[in-house]
Amino acid sequence: MTSNVARETIDVTLGERSYPVWIGRGLLDDRARWRAALRGRHALVISNRTVAPLYLERVAQGLGDLQWSSFLLEDGETHKTFAHVGNALEALAMLGATRDACVIALGGGVVGDLAGFTAACWMRGIDFIQMPTTLLAMVDSSVGGKTGVNLPAGKNLVGAFHQPRAVVADIGTLDSLPEREYRAGLAEVIKGAAIGDAVFFEWLERQAQALARRDESTLIQAIAAKVRYKAGVVARDETEQGERALLNLGHTFGHALETAGRYTTLLHGEGVAVGMLLAARLSERLGMSAQADTLRLQGLLKAAGLPTGVPPGFEAERLLALMRLDKKNTAGALRLILWRGIGRAEIVSGVDEADVLAVLREAIASD
């Protein structure tokens, strides 16, 4: 886990759909690098009203003589909807976008998911480039081609696998990221280590303070390690038929928490943090893992400034009902990502709902 490189390049290897993930400072201004990924005459930049005033002009300078326009969302998970996909598609129509057009996602996970889904829908699929501006998006949602929108019934229930042409992770954009958003991104870094890399988990425990203060060298190493791990998983299982499902550790619990809170109580990374700990407690209850592993996870999450308890006012039965809608479930049975300790996650089918309910009730009673 040592590196003196100011920038990192990681390749997601998917045959003719392979693409680079560039990580470093100043990449938005490295226009020759990312402009080469645009193949046509049209570009639509999708962003939000928080990010666009900060970075849209820098992207615009790289678009040169292309015909381009922008489509801006309000900030927040509640805006990742079909209605806004329809509006973005109308923006492409107004632009006269052809099949060699490109959508550029400039923002966090909400922008990236919606922009990617828009690109997947326009003329049955056009190029898009991810320009993530949050830590969470850099280490997770921008890589792997998952796109989609939310429904009132649950998160990300509609979507498509649609890989980007490139990912431009300019860590300079994190300078404007609020502290809570930054710490939410650390949850996804921790998740990658918890799933499949005990050595990385130990490194994160040692570097927790450096990451909390945003030390640049440490941050680049952490982002690169998480992206490298995810890129390997995606290359082996692009459409989540097996191993890639492990990347959802904590997500079934976390998505239920997000949905129950109407996407306003917890940020996605915060939901993942609480969800991972609930998954660890369930694993412990089922005899799969030791309490020591649960306590180490809890300690690292706390060191990263992340929540570890269920917010007040949530009901166990309601959370379980939402968990039943998770996309990983099969034949009406819960299918969860649990673990046998740090770095050893696995898919567990047919989980008894009584055990899940017990863990939820215990967590609600103690938090």
Score class of each variant (00 low, 15 high):
residue 263 Y to N: 12
residue 269 G to H: 00
residue 270 E to D: 10
residue 291 Q to S: 15
residue 212 A to H: 14
residue 271 G to M: 01
residue 287 G to N: 05
residue 219 L to M: 08
residue 226 K to F: 06
residue 306 L to T: 14
residue 255 H to L: 10
residue 303 A to W: 04
residue 223 I to E: 05
residue 304 A to I: 13
residue 219 L to S: 12
residue 228 R to N: 15
residue 248 N to I: 08
residue 277 L to Q: 00
residue 228 R to Q: 15
residue 284 E to K: 04
residue 305 G to A: 03
residue 289 S to E: 01
residue 301 L to Q: 03
residue 296 R to H: 06
residue 240 E to A: 05
residue 288 M to F: 08
residue 246 L to Q: 02
residue 250 G to A: 05
residue 299 G to S: 08
residue 221 Q to A: 15
residue 297 L to V: 12
residue 228 R to T: 13
residue 231 A to C: 07
residue 251 H to E: 14
residue 295 L to K: 03
residue 235 A to K: 03
residue 258 E to Q: 07
residue 231 A to T: 04
residue 216 E to G: 12
residue 224 A to Q: 05
residue 280 A to V: 10
residue 219 L to I: 03
residue 231 A to W: 01
residue 302 K to H: 09
residue 285 R to T: 13
residue 263 Y to V: 07
residue 283 S to M: 00
residue 221 Q to W: 04
residue 255 H to M: 13
residue 288 M to E: 07
residue 303 A to G: 10
residue 216 E to I: 13
residue 210 A to T: 15
residue 246 L to A: 00
residue 234 V to Y: 00
residue 294 T to Y: 07
residue 294 T to L: 04
residue 284 E to A: 15
residue 289 S to K: 04
residue 249 L to D: 12
residue 274 V to T: 04
residue 213 R to K: 09
residue 284 E to G: 10
residue 296 R to N: 06
residue 244 R to M: 13
residue 238 E to R: 07
residue 244 R to F: 09
residue 226 K to S: 15
residue 235 A to N: 09
residue 294 T to F: 03
residue 244 R to T: 15
residue 241 Q to F: 11
residue 218 T to E: 03
residue 300 L to G: 15
residue 293 D to C: 06
residue 266 L to Y: 05
residue 296 R to K: 01
residue 306 L to Q: 14
residue 211 L to K: 13
residue 229 Y to V: 15
residue 273 A to T: 10
residue 267 L to K: 09
residue 299 G to M: 03
residue 292 A to R: 10
residue 230 K to L: 02
residue 220 I to N: 04
residue 237 D to W: 03
residue 271 G to T: 01
residue 300 L to V: 15
residue 275 G to I: 11
residue 265 T to N: 06
residue 258 E to D: 14
residue 294 T to E: 07
residue 212 A to Y: 08
residue 301 L to C: 02
